[in-house]
Design a protein around this nucleic acid. Structure first.
Lengths: 190, 190
DNA sequence: ATTAATATTGAACATTGTTCAATTATATTT
DNA sequence: AAATATAATTGAACAATGTTCAATATTAAT
């Protein structure tokens, strides 16, 4: 009932994040409710509001984990001897892979408009973006251009997955996301 | 109270669409509730459900209007003597202009995951997409490639506006959407 | 043992989308 | 003109949402 302290505040946060993550994976972003998460971890809704400011805070925490996980996979993927072009191509493919492997987590992260700006959120974005930016530097004549290229690539990846998710890549005729990405990169990396 | 028939079914639909549109423009997508729309047109929520299947049906109707309006603006913009490259650039700029002029309508249309597939919705998408596709044909060696180019351009525009809306074009340093678009098109239209 | 501090609850509130029997205004028929 | 049929509109009701917070129960400190 009170002060069970089965789990520390931080443990509780992690429990909620993992439970929420699983709910999103299995039932989609719209199934992520305070009551469901609370029940999944054996607590009540009120407790969640002791740990998170509100439900967006929980969403943000799940997203931050998704971003760090993706950032890690980008780091794993990086091979020192690789050409910049190959590195970019593999980063881009990793993005599509993430979307394909976890479409619901991707939706929570990118397809749902959420404006929750914390330092942690900002840091998680940078953990990804800085790697993309880095990879662009050898292909660009200035850091500014590299940053712009990184943002363009990111925008295109976003857009492709967004259109794919809503079935709009099938307008007229179906075009696989991979084909569009290849076509795009062939020009973009010329 | 009953069978007032102040308005025909079609008039009622138009009233609801316009009222809903205005609510979205002024207060954003999350303010679009059945009760608010009903009150704005002097009816009750129940009546709305006589006209639309559900709230997503109303959202879809507003989106369809947005799309046809945008498709019209693309047609207006088209000048026969123009080069294909210039035409594409102006189409792309028109997209950014729409986003800038009506960010809330844009959000309802593109940034909110909505899977409402009706023939009307499909037709409205084509009213836009076919023009983009058309414009790409002179720059492509096949209709398939033109269609892919159109989808890539569309994806990138989507992504740029999405990132801009969530402030993520300001990561590291701010980059105006127009600059990114120019940079992208300079390579994409080679 | 008593007290203080705090983690947890669970009921409550406002808002959502949505349904549908009841009601009432208009058409149609007699 | 009266009676009947049809259909538009209501508004109360339901379930589910996020969120709050006084009450309560458990642990820590005295």
């Amino acid at each position: 009932m009170a002060r069970r302290k089965d789990h520390s505040r931080e443990e509780l946060k992690q429990l909620a994040i993992q439970a929420g993550r699983q709910i999103v994976i299995e039932q989609g972003p719209s199934a992520l409710t305070a009551r469901k998460v609370a029940q999944a971890i054996g607590y009540t809704p009120g407790t969640l509001y002791n740990v998170f400011e509100n439900i967006d805070g929980l969403i943000a925490a799940i997203n931050i984990e998704s971003m760090h996980s993706f950032a890690d996979s980008l780091r794993t993927l990086h091979q020192p001897g690789e050409t910049s072009e190959s590195r970019i191509r593999r980063i881009a493919q990793a993005y599509l892979d993430f979307h394909h492997a976890e479409p619901q987590l991707w939706s929570l992260l990118f397809a749902q408009p959420l404006n929750y700006n914390s330092d942690d959120y900002h840091a998680a974005i940078h953990a990804i973006f800085d790697q993309v930016c880095d990879a662009m530097i050898p292909l660009s004549s200035s850091p500014t251009l590299a940053r712009q290229k990184a943002k363009i690539l990111w925008s295109t990846l976003h857009g492709i997955c967004l259109l794919q998710q809503s079935g709009k890549l099938n307008v007229s005729e179906p075009d696989p996301a991979e084909d569009l990405l290849t076509h795009f990169l062939d020009q973009f990396l010329q």
